[in-house]
Every structure is written in structure tokens, then in C-alpha cells.
Nucleic acid binder design. Structure first.
Lengths: 239, 239
DNA sequence: AGCGCACTACGTACGCTGTACGTAACTAGG
DNA sequence: CCTAGTTACGTACAGCGTACGTAGTGCGCT
């Protein structure tokens, strides 16, 4: 008998190796690493069990000895990249700086692994590194005069805000992946459509704002820091 | 020759009917409505061109006369449900109330159509109803002493916040879809794992917060209003 | 010590996907 | 009226997740 019964379980509780049979040739982390590599390179939609197996160097169905379902692999992938948080120098005593640093690290991770956004908004975040993340944030917020629930809300808000910002930053590039034409052409065609609509006069206020802000140069870093700062201030008013 | 050349185009600029051939039997909105219905019922992953065609009552490949690629269908779907905004009674003169109402409407739409979250975070939002939405928000923000760019940031923040909150609210239910066991079993198994981890002592602060907030009852409506209020206050400090 | 069984690896196969392409019917513009 | 371009639709292909069967391996128990 090969597969296990499909009874409720969470991947984190499943032992990587049960003592009986032959020594496994590969490891769960090998497979997850390959999956992350492929998703980084070609996008999450191009990630298939066959391609992972080819990359690892084993037969497709061998993967199912390590990971019961592809969904579980998603969960492992999200947690694996959550392991990239370094949290260096924190807690520093300045919780605002610490949380901003967390946000910046999150941004870096999401930019390196854009597919995480899609997986996380569908709820794949409950592994050990997610717990480590929460514990770290709570440590930084130790002295802050906020009830526990509010701290969790603050953390969730930062996470959500970073994801939203990076999703917006990457929207065009991510969309262009797998399109039969280039990102530049896509942008040109969409821009032209937008301009035509605005010129129609049906959206005067939007047209005004676009005209106004079309001139001013936008700095992504500045927007990011400002937005995150606003989130922090909305929980604890700056002195 | 059936298909068109794959040259850069945006679905909104493609005419629904080009005068020459036989009268189309169906319409783009028929197809989009069917797609929305199916996605609501069975989730976005279960949405296939074959199932849409079966629901509409036509051959699979006939769909491609109305929608060049499935990605374009996604775009049409997002815009279709964006048409559900009613904006009744706005602008009312109280921009805070107006924006809160927008957020509440957005929440309702996302709860009715959970798949929108995934599509929007991948960047599918540039159709006419998205423009209508932006114009409405800008109208409500007319008298507010904020530069245009900041207004756009505010709108984006509200949107993002609502999406994040609803995504969290729906995470469990959405994840349970298509699992080989029930949502209750999933929740039980995940809860048990979490408790085991917290009992291990590796995450003392998290354990403390969970113990503290485990007792207090959480009201989703209250969290929602409070969070959105915080976003508004972070742009314009309350008097 | 050695038997038995749980495990590993992997090939095959099934039902599904998006969509390229070909064919036949139809209709509006020149 | 003619014909080019459109509609509808069937077939077909490459690829997907994964259920299932088979062969071989080595741990745990008797």
C-alpha cells in the first residue's frame, strides 16, 4: 500500500520520516527548495509536480512520499521563505524602528518571492516560522502600552499593508508573465486606454488627479516608509 | 481563420461585435455572469472554460469569440462585481462616513465573491467600474485638504485594508474548499497543532497573548470599523 | 536471527485543463 | 451579388494533479 488514508492532518505534524522502510534519498527541504527556486524563476502557475521532480532528480510520484498534496507544498514554501527573516539587532528598544525594519524585511522577501503574496492571501501562514515571526514582533512590542489583541491587530495590519504595497508594485510585472506580448507593450496599451477614458470627460476628478500627479516623481521607498509609519501612528499616536 | 492575431490589446478596447459575420447568439455579459456564478459557487480554481460553456449552453470554443483569453475573463469578472457598488446617499458631506460606507460595501462584495481577492491582488482592476469607483471616492474626498496623490494613497489603503481583513475572515473557509475533509476537522487539527506548539514554551509572548485573548469575545464588525477608522485617522487626524 | 511489514521509488493511467486549429454556416460591405 | 470576415463548434494536443500498482529495502519484533 502506497498512499496514506486521507484523514485530517496538518503538514507540520507529519513526521518527515517514519522509522520503518528504506532510507529516503531526498528530503522535504530539498523538494521545497526546488519548488521555491522554480516558482521564483517562472511564477507559481508554472510550478508543477513534474517540474519539481525533474529539478530534484526523482520520479514525479516520489514527491508524494514527502508531501501528501500540492497544497501542503504551498504551505511549506511559504514557511520556508518566512525563514529568511533575520531580525538583526532587534529588539533595539525603539519599537517603531523595529517594526519598520520588520516591514522592510517583509518587503524584501515578497519582492524576491512574488508568489508568496498569492499564497498568503489564501491563508497559507501557520507554520513554525510564522510563529517565530509573531513572537519576534511581540518581543519588539513588549513595552508598548497596548493590549495583546491590539498588538496582534498591529502586526496583522503591518503584514497586510506590506503585502498590498508590494502587490501593487509588482502587479504589472506579474501580470505580464505568460502574456503573449511584452510588459512594455502591455503598459503602453493599458496607458493608452486609460488616457482615452480620462479624455472622455466621464471622470473629471480622476483626470485632474492624474494630470497633477503625472508630473511629480514618485519614490517607492518613500511611499513605503510613509505608509508603514501611518499604520504605526494609527495604533500609538507619536509623541 | 478563427482566432485573431495575438497582438497587444486590452479587453476593454475590443469591440463586442464587429459588423461582418452572423449575429452572435450569446453576449459577453452572459458569459461573465455565468463565470461569476460558477466562481461564487465552487471557487475560482474550479472555474474552467468547459464548465462556463456548459452553463451558458454553448460549445467550449465559442467562448473564445467573446473573450480572447481566460485572463481577460478574469478582468471582466472583477469589473462586473465592481459594478455592485451602489454608493447610495454619497457624497453626504461627511467624507469619513462616506469612506466607511465604501469600505463596508467593498467588504460585502468581497464576501459575496471571495475569488475577487485573489484576482485583485494579482492586479486585475483597471476596467470602467474601477474608474467609476475611483471617481466616486475622489468626489467624497472633494473638500478634504489633501493633495491628489495622498487621496489616491488613502483610497488604495482603504481598498487594501478591506481586502486584507476579508481575506483573514475567509481564510479558513476558502482553504477548506477542495480539501478531502471538512472545515471543522481542519480547524480542529490546526488548533490542536497550535496549542501543542504554544505549550512547548518556545513562544512565550505569543502564548500569553493567545491565552489572554482566548477569553475575550471578538466582534468582526467592530474590528472592521475600528481598523478602517484608523486608516482614515492616519491621513487626517480627527478634530 | 530472521520474518514480516511499513516504507521508498517510480511507471502507468485517468480525468481534467487551456486553447490552437480546421470546418461549415452565415451576413454585411463593396 | 459576391466574398471576406465572423460565428459556432468539434477535434486534438500538451500538460496538469494524483490514484493506484509493483518492486525492492531495511527496521522492529518475536
Amino acid at each position: 500500500m502506497a498512499g496514506r488514508a486521507a484523514e485530517p492532518e496538518v503538514i507540520w505534524a507529519r513526521p518527515e520520516r517514519a522509522g520503518r522502510g528504506p532510507r529516503p534519498v531526498y528530503s522535504r527541504s530539498d523538494i521545497v527548495a526546488a519548488a521555491v527556486r522554480l516558482a521564483d524563476a517562472d511564477g507559481i502557475d508554472a510550478l508543477s509536480m513534474r517540474r519539481i521532480a525533474a529539478d530534484v532528480g526523482c520520479g514525479t510520484m516520489s514527491l508524494y512520499n514527502y508531501v501528501p498534496r500540492k497544497e501542503d507544498l504551498y504551505e511549506l514554501m511559504v514557511d520556508a521563505v518566512s525563514g529568511e527573516y533575520e531580525f538583526t539587532g532587534a529588539p533595539s528598544g525603539d519599537w517603531r524602528a523595529d517594526m519598520l525594519a520588520v516591514g522592510r524585511e517583509a518587503r524584501g522577501i515578497l519582492r524576491r518571492h512574488p508568489w508568496v503574496i498569492r499564497l498568503m492571501t489564501t491563508g497559507y501562514a501557520s507554520g513554525p516560522n510564522a510563529l517565530r515571526f509573531l513572537e519576534h514582533c511581540l518581543t519588539c512590542l513588549e513595552g508598548v502600552g497596548l493590549p495583546g489583541g491590539a498588538k496582534m491587530e498591529l502586526i496583522a495590519n503591518i503584514n497586510g499593508t506590506v503585502m498590498t504595497i508590494v502587490a501593487n508594485e509588482l502587479a504589472l510585472a506579474e501580470r505580464a508573465r505568460g502574456l503573449p506580448w511584452s510588459e512594455e507593450e502591455e503598459q503602453a496599451v493599458r496607458g493608452a486606454y486609460l488616457m482615452r477614458q480620462l479624455a472622455g470627460g466621464a471622470y473629471p476628478r480622476l483626470a485632474a488627479v492624474m494630470a497633477e500627479s503625472g508630473a511629480t516623481r514618485i519614490d517607492p521607498e518613500e511611499i513605503f516608509d510613509r505608509t508603514l509609519g501611518r499604520v504605526l501612528d494609527s495604533f500609538v499616536a507619536p509623541e
